[in-house]
């Protein structure tokens, strides 16, 4: 199984990674090459995912958060293409043979990559209805994942594992659920089944792409609570992609705010919510309803610019209330705002 290269020969395995980082994304660039131009959906995105923590990625539709997640798993389909960057994964404890070290997922052969997909990094998607195959039972779909990533199990053990993960995600009557087809379950149960498929792969990192967007509010809370509990119990890291700042406030340890394919602000959840530095982050927070909100909610005027025709300078200039001449001429870099907090702004909030 592991290592992917010829045995005894270190292959694309860099020296030991620093302390407890499971995943490091460096300068990731994913572009979509269409007839209407090149869309820079993910443009120079870097972040790290510490072991056992939740990283929240927030942004509007089209900000590049889902494409970032798909790029990590190399699931971007044409005309999208990963054109640069590295996705470094710590290999400690992938399997018993695993050497200590890191590997760049973007340089792996497709067959090697498949071991990481699901096995190391699993992903769950927004629409539990359409993300489950309608013609196979829930049990079949989980068992397939178990069979792929725990090859040592026999059929009976695999089935036991299926029931085990169904119990983990708190599906009542796992035996029956395993024999059900997706359409026979409610939305919340389907999302639990999706999570069960992901868990069947025994991942160390779970990417949840808008896991609750399609669900009722009460069910949303249950699913989020379940994700938190599973992360703690199984010691997983969670990348939580959402447009809902409320979800991020409750769940995430660290927050990444994306806008037009770029990270505009990054920091701990406390930093982001109490001291947002980027005008976009501040505007997003002001658009959140609170107990004290009276009258109309604040909105951000305008809309996300087309990724094929971004203006010169800062991508947020058209919607920013602090815009100045410099913003229209120069593209700001991510600038350190405090310990662990960065923002892409020349004139940050203080």
């Amino acid at each position: 199984m592991w290592p992917p290269g010829p045995r005894g020969q270190p292959r694309r395995v860099a020296p030991t990674i620093m302390n407890d980082t499971l995943l490091t994304v460096e300068n990731l660039k994913t572009y979509f090459f269409t007839e209407r131009g090149v869309f820079k959906s993910v443009d120079d995105v870097s972040f790290t995912v510490p072991r056992g923590k939740t990283v929240g990625i927030v942004g509007e539709s089209g900000s590049g958060k889902s494409v970032t997640a798909l790029s990590i798993l190399r699931l971007v389909s044409a005309p999208g293409k990963i054109v640069g960057g590295r996705v470094m994964v710590s290999c400690r404890g992938v399997l018993q043979y695993a050497p200590t070290g890191t590997v760049d997922l973007l340089t792996l052969e497709e067959s090697e990559m498949r071991r990481f997909r699901g096995g190391k990094i699993a992903m769950i998607f927004q629409e539990p209805m359409t993300s489950l195959n309608p013609v196979f039972t829930i049990g079949d779909q989980i068992e397939e994942a178990v069979a792929l990533h725990q090859k040592e199990l026999n059929e009976a053990q695999r089935w036991e594992q299926v029931l085990e993960v169904l119990r983990l995600v708190r599906i009542p009557d796992p035996e029956r659920a395993a024999r059900s087809y997706p359409h026979e379950l409610s939305g919340g149960m389907r999302q639990r089944a999706m999570i069960a498929i992901a868990l069947g792969c025994r991942p160390e990192i779970l990417i949840a792409d808008e896991p609750t967007t399609a669900l009722d509010v009460t069910v949303q809370a249950q699913v989020l609570e379940l994700l938190r509990e599973l992360r703690e119990r199984l010691g997983m890291s969670l990348i939580l992609i959402t447009h809902d700042l409320g979800v991020v406030a409750e769940q995430a340890d660290e927050v990444i705010v994306m806008y037009a394919g770029k990270i505009v602000e990054q920091g701990t959840v406390r930093q982001i919510f109490s001291h947002p530095r980027h005008p976009y982050t501040r505007a997003l927070l002001e658009a959140l309803p609170t107990f004290h909100t009276t009258g109309r909610l604040r909105t951000i005027p305008g809309s996300v610019p087309s990724l094929a025709a971004l203006p010169r300078g800062c991508s947020f200039q058209e919607r920013c209330d602090r815009v100045q001449q410099r913003c229209r001429e120069e593209d700001p870099e991510l600038m350190v705002m405090g310990e662990g907090q960065v923002a892409r702004c020349f004139f940050p909030e203080l």
Binding site: L75, F116, R117, G118, E144, I197
Partner: peptide
């Protein structure tokens, strides 16, 4: 183009298994 094909790929299935098992039956 369906989402469940992406799910199948995200599991780590090989492309041939994705096509012959998940896509073909549907």
């Amino acid at each position: 183009r369906q989402d469940y094909i992406r799910t199948a790929r995200a599991k780590g299935l090989s492309e041939s298994a994705v096509i012959l098992k998940h896509a073909l039956r549907n």
